[in-house]
Design a protein around this nucleic acid. Sequence first.
DNA 1: TGCGCAGCGGTCGTTACTTA
DNA 2: TAAGTAACGACCGCTGCGCA
Length: 350
Amino acid sequence: MMIPKETHNKEAEVLERALEAFNKLTGLNFMVEEREVDIEGREADAIISLAVDGKVFRYVAEIEKFLTPVKINLIFLKKLAQLHPKRIIVTDYINPNLAEQLRKLDIPFIDITGNAYIKEPPVYIFIKGNKQQIEVLAKKQKIRAFQPTGLKVVFAFLCQPELVNAPYREIAKKAKVALGTVGWVMRDLKEAGFLIGTKKRGRKLINRRKLLDRWVEAYPENLRPKLLVGRYQAEKDDWWKFTQIQDFNAYWGGEIAAAKITQYLKPEIATIYINDTPTKFLLHNKLAKKPDGNVEILKTFWEIDYNWPYKDLVPPILIYVDLLATGDTRSIETAQIIYERELARLIGEN
DNA sequence: TGCGCAGCGGTCGTTACTTA
DNA sequence: TAAGTAACGACCGCTGCGCA
């Protein structure tokens, strides 16, 4: 995929400034050894090294802008999969919550305000709480493909890649969006390097893994909150084992769906996607409204018939993203299992 | 300091027009 | 005639200002 020169310059600036801030604050010397290197067939932003007491620690620097909790969980997944040994996140700003999350997952980072986490025994550095600088390096671009309606279209494409060759009207129907939206999303996906071709020559979705990552980052922020009907509390923990969810025109998502597929997880939060108003479902399962309850009900947003044997579960992409959004280690590990079993073939990694 | 209102900008749906 | 594009308007959310 072609990456604009401007993007490279901004990433280089983030790296320079993060190293400068770290060195100034700690008195140590982090330096760039190589830029844009090929590591195990994947392009990495840079190799940086830190020399302490005659020892040199080398890291693959991954320059990330606008870090979110879900993005961190994705990074953790790659760490689990051992895609890059010893990677360090270099970013513009890490707030104290994100810093704690990174430390818990043992992911090293530095940012341009001097926040940092490095654990290389006997070296241990953890700096958080440095305030974000007012000037912003780059404004977060609003791309329609990753706005609420765009996310619905991209979800339909990820679940049914052949849908990109359907007429816009059919895409609009399957993704439950307006016709005009499809045109905007197609344009965005082409510009971002996720779609090639024309209706005449045939369109094709490319860089699907990266597209999935972008969707997973954007969904919890831009679409999921709009789907939430409410949170509820059940009388018993195992209530869900006795419910035929299809009778209510609904699907299990998140931890319950993951538990049913993998038997690896003991569900703590029940996520339900429902087509109709949930009144009958609530009454039947004796669910009471509670803001911090462990049952969350969301509206469905797709009309595609996903081809897999679990008719009472949401498509696996949705299970994957809901697990990543919960954030605990076991859920992230389960997300990785779902990815390997159900998603890798879908996005063409096998 | 907190609340409410107004204005503005962005998003998205509808519809009409263009193109093949 | 079907499919894609563009224009327009409605709606929603954010921000800033004024008032209590």
